[in-house]
Write a protein that binds this DNA or RNA. Sequence first.
DNA 1: CTAGGGTTAGGT
DNA 2: ACCTAACCCTAG
Length: 259
Amino acid sequence: MGAPKQKWTSEEEEALRRGVLKHGAGKWRTIQKDPEFSPVLSSRSNIDLKDKWRNLSFSASGLGSRDKLRVPRPKAPSSSPSPSPQLLLLSAPNNVAEASPPEDCEKSPQDDKTPSPKYSSMILEALDELKEPNGSEVATICNFIEIDKSYKLTDSYAKRALAPMKDPSLKKKDSAKSSKAAKGVGQLSPALDAAEAAAMKVADAEAKSHLANEHMMEVERIGKMAEETESLLELASELYERCSRGEALTILQVAHREF
DNA sequence: CTAGGGTTAGGT
DNA sequence: ACCTAACCCTAG
């Protein structure tokens, strides 16, 4: 009648994020019944929470108009067979491996490079908190890190900032793909997009750091944030490199905590 | 109750 | 005209 479509507000979205952060994805009913989010999500149903979270994750990682995944494609371009849409997923098996001493939390799979133990710690923490059976998506991890580090990245604008760019050469349509690229770069892989998205988020976070939110007025917090941002940038770069080679990213994490 | 799919409405 | 976001229905 008056409101056929009730758009989600920042408060509701924040509550949802925090709910997933605290309880974990899947416990929509618990989050909805939580006295802390009850007043905020009072007009929202558990199904709504799930839907919103789904749309959020999809918009943050898959990028709305990168690949025409909507409806089965009538005919695929001869130049682009696209056999398997590789999605960048971080698997976090709960198997207990003794190959990870508690002292050395840093375990870079690429031996050298040695980025920073900070990002590893954050990702591990995110995986530990989320502990999703199917592994956590990059977007989800980034989301967790954002909240955990009081990051106020792009919210819903993440897609806006990292996707369109209004590039005529790299149009969202498959027209660019069907056309044989004369350059050696070719088309971008979905996994690459994820890495790019991470890099974009980092860059955005850095830009946002200057503005500083009303929450974080402490200089210490900002200084720490800068460090974390740099570490995250390292992660983005590494992801980009590894994804370029077509390697699958798999971070093994030891479950040292039972929720 | 949660997960997935499909449909409708609104915005660009 | 196309895409994005929310809502509804069904299955496990």
